[in-house]
Simulated assay, not measured.
Amino acid sequence: MNRSKQLLRRLALPLVAWALACAPALAARVKDVASVQGVRSNQLVGYGLVVGLDGTGDRNNAYATRSLANFMQQMGLALPQGVTVQPKNVAAVMVTAELPPFARPGQTIDVTVSSVGSAKSLRGGTLIQTPLRGADGQVYALAQGSLVVAGAGASAGGSSVTVNHLNAGRIPSGALVERTVPTPLLLGDTVTLALRAEDFQTATRVATAINRAIGDGTAQALDGRTVQVRAPRDPNERVAFLASLEDLPVELAAPTARVVFNARTGSVVLNQAVSLAPAAIAHGNLSISITSTPQVSQPPPFAPPGAQTVVTEKADIQVQQEGGKLIEVQASAQLADVVRALNKLGATPADLLAILQALKAAGALKAELEVI
C-alpha cells in the first residue's frame, strides 16, 4: 500500500507538468497581462460655470443664480440688495478629469464638462476657472477654456431638431496640473505586479518567466492576482528594470470558455474556447396577439328616460405557437463550428440565450454563461 502511494506521488508532478505543457498557450508580454501596483490614474471633479451661451443656459435654477452672484462678488462686483441675476447665458456644470500617473505641475489634461441644471445647450460656451479636487479634498488641477460640443440643434415654429448631445462637451488640454500625487513605486525592495484577471496559472507563468530571464528567486506568485518582484533600490536602475520586465514574453493558457449575454442590447458573444457536445434541440416560438376594437351601444327605441349611448371595448386574444423541428447538433470544437451549428436554429438573440442555458443544463455546452 505504501509503495502505491509513493508511486502516485512520483507520478503526480510529471503528470501536472505534462498537462501544462500540452495545454494550448498564447504568447504575450508581461505588460499585456499585468501592471505595476500603485501606478494608476486618479479621478478629479469640480463645480463651475460655463458662460457665453446664446440664451441656452440655466434660467430659474437657484444654485446657478447664486453661483454667478458669488463669482461676481469675488471679482469685486457686489449686487445691490434685492437685485437678482437671470443667467440665460450661464450654465452650472460639473467638470471631471483623470489625473494620469506621474503627472507633474504645469502639464495639461483633458476635461469633460456636463450640465447639472436646465441648460438646453453648452455649445459655444466657455468654462471659467474651476478647481478640480481629488478624493482627499485637495486641489490637483485648474480647468478653464472653450468647450467642444459634438452636436447641433435648431428650433422654429414650436418644432426642434437636435443632433447628438448638447449638454456635455470636452476641453482638450483644458486643465493645468497644480499638484503631484505621490506614488509608492520607488519605496521598498520589491515591486508588485497586479494581474488584470484572476488566474493562478497566469500568475505562476509570469513569475516563472521573470525567474527564467533574471534569476531564481526574483519573482514569487503570492496569489492568483499578485506577483511580487525584487527590484533595485536606485530610482534609475528600478525604472530600467521595470522597462525590461514589462517586455518579457510569457506563455498564457487558453482562456476560460465563456458566453456573455447583454440583456440591454440582446447581443451574445462567445470566445474561442467555447465547444459543444452532441445534442438535439427543438425550439418553437409562442406568440400572443391582443386586439381591442371600440363598439358603440345605443339605447333601443322607446328606451326609458336617462338611457345613454355607451362605448365598449371588444377584446380579441389569439395564441399561436409555432412548431419547432428537432435539430441534431454535432460535436463542435472550434468557434466557427459552434456558430454554424447555432445559426441552423434560426433563433433570435433572446431565444439563443434560452437555448444556451438549456444546453448548459444538459451538459452539452462547455462554457460559462454570464449575463451583464
Rank of each mutant, 00 (worst) to 15 (best):
D110V: 00
Q334K: 11
G158I: 05
A277T: 09
K5I: 09
A231P: 01
A194K: 13
L187P: 00
F71W: 14
P255G: 11
I355R: 05
R40I: 00
P305C: 01
V149W: 03
R205P: 02
L245A: 06
G157E: 09
L20R: 07
A280C: 02
E368W: 03
N271R: 06
N236A: 15
D316F: 04
T108K: 13
T190D: 09
R196G: 09
P304L: 07
G363A: 07
Q308D: 10
K88L: 14
G57R: 05
D234R: 07
I327H: 11
T130L: 06
L15F: 10
A231R: 03
Q107K: 06
Q298K: 11
A209L: 04
L79M: 15
S115Y: 01
W18Q: 13
P299D: 07
L99I: 00
M72H: 06
V311I: 14
L353N: 12
F102K: 04
C22K: 15
H283A: 15
G82E: 07
A207E: 04
S67A: 15
G306S: 08
S114N: 05
T218E: 08
S275C: 02
L193E: 05
V177F: 04
A119P: 01
E178P: 00
A141S: 01
V329N: 05
R340G: 11
L185D: 02
I317P: 02
K314Q: 15
A213K: 13
L353S: 13
L11S: 08
S244F: 06
L53S: 13
A263G: 02
N285M: 02
D316H: 14
C22F: 10
E368T: 11
Q81N: 09
L222I: 15
G215V: 08
K314M: 10
N164P: 00
S297Q: 15
S267L: 06
D54V: 00
V83I: 09
E328P: 00
V45G: 12
Q220M: 11
L53Q: 10
D247C: 02
P278W: 11
A282S: 12
R212S: 14
A103F: 00
L166D: 06
P172A: 10
V310E: 11
S118R: 03
L245N: 07
A350F: 14
Q357E: 14
A168Y: 03
C22N: 15
K120W: 03
P101K: 04
I214F: 15
S35L: 09
P172W: 04
Q86W: 14
V339S: 09
I355F: 08
S287A: 13
V149A: 01
L326Y: 08
T312F: 04
P305E: 12
P182D: 09
A336D: 11
Q129S: 12
P24M: 13
I214P: 00
E368P: 00
L345Y: 05
L359E: 10
N89G: 13
S292M: 06
S146V: 11
Q295T: 09
K88N: 15
F261I: 09
L77P: 00
L342N: 04
G55R: 02
D216A: 09
A263R: 07
A23V: 06
L127D: 07
G174F: 07
L335F: 01
